[in-house]
Design a protein around this nucleic acid. Structure first.
Lengths: 202, 202
DNA sequence: CTCCACATGTAAAAGGTTACATGATTAG
DNA sequence: CTAATCATGTAACCTTTTACATGTGGAG
């Protein structure tokens, strides 16, 4: 007899889709919306085409079932539902797989690293832009956090991921200020480039 | 008359390679080593095969030149050198291209988000593991920082990227403690899972 | 009347990793 | 003698994005 079969060679992205389905049955279309409002901040915002192909793969692996739903007013749907086997595989992956390092790929930091090629003036401008974007991101995350707080059984895990975003974004903002100050202290002559756009300095 | 020609449709990764070449002429082999010791922490650690194909692309675009170097004791090399045009394109990309968001793809946070599927005990264990890894990362970054400090004209930009890593890693560690505490406070019965491995609790 | 939401997919291309292939020298 | 370093590349594969393709109903 084959022991607890371990068909488990699926990539993380398959588990992402499977994991979203663990919240309830959904169509590919629903899944895309849900992903964009949940895991997009720390994992990925899938292309539609990829969702549909992941669903085919999960179905073939027996981790989800497909149900055709006819509609007259709207296009027909296919509703996907996680199976018992799907829940088992998911629990194993979430709880007991190897920790793999996160992918962090910042073209912005690459540009900072190559700053010499552009000069400190251009770099300062870039940093100001970056700072503004991060501040906007922080505001956005704090809003999401308000909607979730406080820590409770229901919102615990999603709130934790939002808190991770808040911590990291705050750190990035602190770093930006430090970086701007460091460049200024080495180049006291350089412009501040604050986003004024002021027409009348009166 | 065609204004300042803008052949510039290259992906960020090409500029990463071009940027490394702005530090001096190198072979593909050298480039791989250099990348692993510089931009790997915030951008990417390239596969050899990709380096060589990027070099072909850059050469074709006229941004680098190739020089064949014969060696008797070692395999022959090809040394690549950035051109004037290459430096111009690089300066434009670093200083004046659009800021694009960083790719941040954490399977770890995905697993936290899906924590319900595995239960808080497994999650706590995962968080402890993560915390240990991040602490090791912080130590590694602080070491790199020592070798670079203090801020100076020469080391400014690379030190800035290391500092970014330090800020973000510290934030991640703080978050981990918060997350562990939050789970404990909602599940007071759960084990601490500190990495004891103790054989003799005497 | 026009745009948006609903709903699913195919095809092509790009980005990136892994495995394969080769082969000399040097350090232990 | 064995492993690591030097040195370059091809082929196959996987993941992911973008563009293409289609069509209805409701809201403004």
């Amino acid at each position: 007899m084959p022991a607890l079969q371990q068909t488990n060679n699926l990539p993380a992205t398959s588990f992402a889709v499977l994991g979203l389905l663990s919240f309830g049955p959904m169509s590919g279309y629903d899944l895309k919306q849900f992903a964009d409002r949940s895991i997009s901040h720390f994992y990925w915002s899938p292309a539609k085409s990829q969702i549909y192909s992941e669903l085919r793969r999960l179905k073939q692996a027996g981790l989800v079932t497909e149900q055709h739903v006819q509609q007259q007013t709207r296009p027909d749907k296919r509703i996907y539902e996680i199976t018992e086997e799907g829940r088992n595989q998911l629990a194993g992956w979430v709880g007991h797989s190897e920790l793999e390092p996160a992918v962090f790929k910042s073209t912005f930091l690459l540009r900072v690293f190559l700053g010499r090629a552009a000069g400190h003036e251009a770099l300062l401008h870039l940093l100001q832009q970056h700072l503004a974007q991060e501040e906007a991101m922080l505001a956005h995350l704090q809003e999401a956090q308000e909607e979730c707080s406080p820590y409770s059984d229901d919102s615990l895990y999603s709130l934790l991921t939002i808190r991770a975003g808040v911590h990291i974004t705050e750190a990035t903002i602190k770093w930006s200020h430090e970086a701007i100050a460091a460049i200024h202290s080495l180049h006291p002559d350089s412009q501040t480039h604050t986003e004024t756009g002021a027409l009348d300095p009166a």
